[in-house]
Design a protein around this nucleic acid. Sequence first.
DNA 1: GTGAAAGCGCTAACAT
DNA 2: ATGTTAGCGCTTTCAC
Lengths: 343, 343
Amino acid sequence: MTSRRHVTLRDVAREAGVSVRTVSNVVNDFHYVSSETREKVEAAIAVLGYRPNRSARSLRNGSTRTLGLVLPEFSQPYFAELADTVFAAAAEAGYKVLIETLGPGGDERIADVVGDLAVSTDGVLVSPTFLDGTTLAAEDSPVPMVALTARRIDAGFDHVAMDDARGAELATAHLLGMGRRRIAAIGSALGFARHGRTGEARHRGYLAAHATAGVEPDEALAVGTLEWTQASGYEAVRELRSRGAAFDAVFAMNDLLAIGVLHALQDEGAAIPGDVAVAGFDDIAMASHLSPPLTTIDPGMRDIVDTAIRLLLGRIDGSRTGQGEEILVPPTLVVRGTTHAPS
Amino acid sequence: MTSRRHVTLRDVAREAGVSVRTVSNVVNDFHYVSSETREKVEAAIAVLGYRPNRSARSLRNGSTRTLGLVLPEFSQPYFAELADTVFAAAAEAGYKVLIETLGPGGDERIADVVGDLAVSTDGVLVSPTFLDGTTLAAEDSPVPMVALTARRIDAGFDHVAMDDARGAELATAHLLGMGRRRIAAIGSALGFARHGRTGEARHRGYLAAHATAGVEPDEALAVGTLEWTQASGYEAVRELRSRGAAFDAVFAMNDLLAIGVLHALQDEGAAIPGDVAVAGFDDIAMASHLSPPLTTIDPGMRDIVDTAIRLLLGRIDGSRTGQGEEILVPPTLVVRGTTHAPS
DNA sequence: GTGAAAGCGCTAACAT
DNA sequence: ATGTTAGCGCTTTCAC
C-alpha cells in the first residue's frame, strides 16, 4: 500500500544533510535560507515524498487551518450548493473544511455536534434547517462560530443570512403585480411551527406584500407542510383542491416545494403561468432547467458565505471582537417562465 | 467567544484530584477504574467542559479515526447522496469524514488532492466522475485507498462499483421488452470519450441488450453530450429532432439527463410513455418524484459504500492484504411511470 | 544561516 | 487501581 508509513522532518534533514530547523524553514518559507540549501532540501522532500504531519503541526500551533461546517444533509440541493460554495470560499482563504451532517430532523444534536467539531477546527459555520436560539449558545463551542441563519435571540455569535421576509415579499409582490389575487402560500402557515422562524419570516413577507397591495389574503390558501420537499409540494396542491380553495398563483417557500407544485399542476393539466403562476425560493441550480423554468428568489449565497467566512476569520485572528452581529443579505427576484409566458 | 481556550487532561486530573492516567482511562474506558473515581472524573469533565484534543490523540496514536472522501462536487445529486451515504456508514464504524471536492472537470488534480487528504486521514475513498488509471496510483497515497469506480488498469488498490454495463442492459432490455425498437441512447456515443469508461460501459450494455433481442441499433440514435446534466438532456432531444431521427424510447445515461429529456418531450407535447418511453440511471431521490416518475437503475449505493468501507477498514487494520480487487455490485431495474402507464 | 532542545496534549509502558 | 513519564512530529526560542 505504501513504501514508508511516515516520512518526518528529521528524515528529510538527514537526507539533505541539514538540521530540522532548516527544513522547517524551507517548508514554511521562513527566514533566510540560501538558495543552494533550499534546493538541497526541496530535492530531499521530493525524493522521500515528505508531507508535513498535520496533527503534529496543529498540536504545536494550536491551529488546524480547518473550518467546520454543520448542515442537515447534502441531499437537499440548497445545502449541497451551500457546501460547494463554502468549500470554494474556504479554499481561497487557505482553509480546509470538515463537515458534520445532522441528518434530517437532527437539529437537537446541534450543540453536541458543534462542540465535537470545534476541537478539530479553528471556527465553525452552522447552517441548520431550523435554529432555535435556546439550543445553541456561544459556550457550546470552544472556537468562534457563525450561524448561517437569521438570529433568534442573542446567542453571542454572528449571524449571516438572507432576508427571508424581504425575499418572500418580492416574490409575492411580483405575483400580485401580474394581477393575481388568490395566491396560495405553501410550506408554512401561521402557527405552523415546524419550519420555525424561516417559514414564519417568509410567511410574514407574503402577508406584507398583500398589505402593501391592499389585498386581503385568504387564510384557506395557506398550507403548512411537514417537510419542504417535492412530495410535500405535490401533496399541498391536492390539499388545496380538496379544500375547494381556488387560486391563480402559488408562492412556495422553497424550490423543491415549487417543483412538486409544478408536477401536481401539470398532472391536472393546468396551464402555467396561464391558469396558475408559480414562484419558489432559493434559486437552486435545477430551477432554471425546469419546464417552464421557475421564477424564484436568489438568496445571494456566495455573498452570504463570503461574509460569514470573513466574520469567522476575523474572530479567529482576533481582529473582530465584541457582540455578535446579524447581517442580512438582500435577496433578488429572478423572473422566469412560471410567471412569465415567453413571447 | 469562549471562557477557556484549552481544557486539558491535566486540568481534569487536577480538578478531580487524580492522575492523568486515570482520567485517560476513564475517557477511553480502559482498565479498571473504581466507579467512585469514575464518577469524580466524569463530574470534573462536565464541570470543565473537557473535550479531548484530536490532534494530540492522532499524533500519539498515528490514527485519526477519519476517512477521506474525494468527489467532484455536491451539487450533482448522485454525489450528494453518495456523501450522505458515506457519512452514515462511516459514523456507524466510528469514523469522521473529511471531504475534498475536485470541482467540475478537476479530475487531473486527483493525485495531488488524494496525497494531501491522506496525511490527515487513515484511508481515502475516491469517487471521481472519471478515473483514468494513469492519473492515480497507490503510491499517491500514504494510506489505503479504495476507488468507487470500475477498475481501468491495475492501479494497486481496491475498486467497488456498480456494474454499469449490466445496469444499462437491464434498462435497455426493459424498453425493448415493451416493444420499443428505436431507442435513443443519450450521454455517450461510441468514440465519445468525455465520460470515459462509465459512458462506454453503459453504451456497451445498451448494445448488448439489442444484440440479445436481435434488434439492430441505429447509430443515428446515439447522442454524446459534454455533460450529464438536465440542460444536456434537453438539448439532446432537440439534436435528435434536428437529425430527423424518429425514436419511441430514450435510454439516458443518468437521471439528470433523463429529467432534461422529459422536459423537452413535455414541451413538445409528446405523451410519456405513450409516444416515448424514458429510462434513466442512478435512481436519485428526485427520480421518484417526477411527473411521471422515472424508470431508472438503482445502483445499490448503500451496498457499494458499505463494501468499500469494509475493504478500506480491512486495509487500515491490516486484516486485508494482497492485490487490489474489483467488486461489482449488481444494479436493479426500478420500473416507474415513464415506461409504465398507471392502470 | 544553522543547530539543540523544549513542549503542544495525549497514550501507554512501567512502576507501585 | 492509580501514579509517573517518555515520546508522537512539529515549530520556535535561544545559542552559536
